[in-house]
């Protein structure tokens, strides 16, 4: 057998993790979402986690399509509702590792209320949020994460609203693990996801990703490579940074790293511990 034929027959290392019958995906060339999916798959492989016990839940939007491509129990829910869906799934089957994979508009915009409450309850889910600073699926509208002065289709003269700093929000609401990376930091994203798999409670990883077709084009920021260059030149790793200092200005500096890593019993553990104390032997523990 010639080398070429062998190469053709060789399996894509991601095949076992993806729904190959749904490839090619819908993402634009230069988009950062695929990179984050690759890191996620890499983290699944390296964690040697039982894939039958991992579920992925997405909302709506470009990143919302991730659940459709990953070969796990996968749920493509409604806009903003991935977190409450995941809450029901996790509590319904506590032995599962439930991952929410969605965009900034979904998680911090329309789903903001669910985000803060799941973090407050310390619901045992991992939330991976791809932040591309805009509503891309609908054509590049202003988002709760859009930097001031960025130009968006519904902020045609530039954005003047203060954006969320997602790690600060997650920290303030009580998340047990908070990290931020960009699409350039692929190994670190993988490591962060692996690390988060090992932890319990509400874990949050933000990944800044380029939207070449809309955000970058409208703001004349160039192609995917230009944006990665921008990430390279302007991101600074500062583990443990005070989450109050993580604002991102338009084309400004981005502080990345792991900011929060704390131990705190998650929702179900709190419920069982509390009820045992309150009700003694009469309590029927759940999901232990």
């Amino acid at each position: 057998m010639s080398k070429d034929v062998k190469a053709q027959e060789a399996k894509n290392p991601m095949e076992d993790f993806l729904r190959m019958d749904r490839i090619p995906h819908i993402w634009c060339s230069g988009c950062g979402i695929g990179v984050v999916v690759t890191s996620f798959v890499d983290a699944l492989r390296k964690s040697e986690i039982d894939l039958n016990k991992v579920a992925i839940v997405s909302g709506i939007g470009c990143t919302g399509r991730v659940a459709g491509y990953v070969k796990l129990d996968s749920f493509h829910s409604t806009h903003g509702r991935a977190i409450p869906f995941a809450t029901g799934l996790k509590l319904g089957n506590p032995e599962m590792q439930v991952v929410v994979f969605s965009g900034d508009g979904d998680i911090a915009g329309i789903g903001g209320n669910h985000f803060v409450h799941a973090a407050r309850r310390n619901m045992d889910i991992l939330v991976i949020c791809v932040n591309n600073f805009n509503y891309a699926m609908t054509g590049g509208q202003v988002a709760a994460t859009s930097p001031i002065n960025a130009n968006l289709s519904t902020a045609p003269y530039g954005n003047f609203e203060y954006p969320f700093s997602l790690p600060y929000l997650a920290d303030a609401c009580g998340a047990t693990y908070v990290a931020r990376w960009t699409c350039l930091h692929i190994r670190r994203v993988t490591m962060s996801i692996q690390e988060a798999f090992q932890k319990k409670g509400f874990r949050f990883i933000e990944v800044i990703a380029p939207c070449v077709t809309l955000y970058a084009r409208r703001n004349r920021l160039g192609d995917g490579l230009n944006l990665l260059k921008y990430y390279h030149d302007n991101s600074e790793i500062r583990h443990g940074a005070d989450t109050r200092t993580l604002d991102i200005g338009y084309q400004g500096k981005m502080i990345v790293g792991k900011f929060v890593d704390r131990e705190k019993p998650p929702f179900l553990e709190c419920m069982n511990t509390h009820m045992k104390k309150a009700l003694g032997d009469k309590y029927v523990p759940y999901g232990e």
Binding site: V57, D73, F75, S77, T78, R81, I83, P84, F85, A86, T87, G88, L89, K90, L91, G92, N93, M96, N113, H114, H117
Partner: peptide
Amino acid sequence: ASVTALIGASWA
């Protein structure tokens, strides 16, 4: 959130 959580729990 209540109804959405039901759907998740039902699939579990």
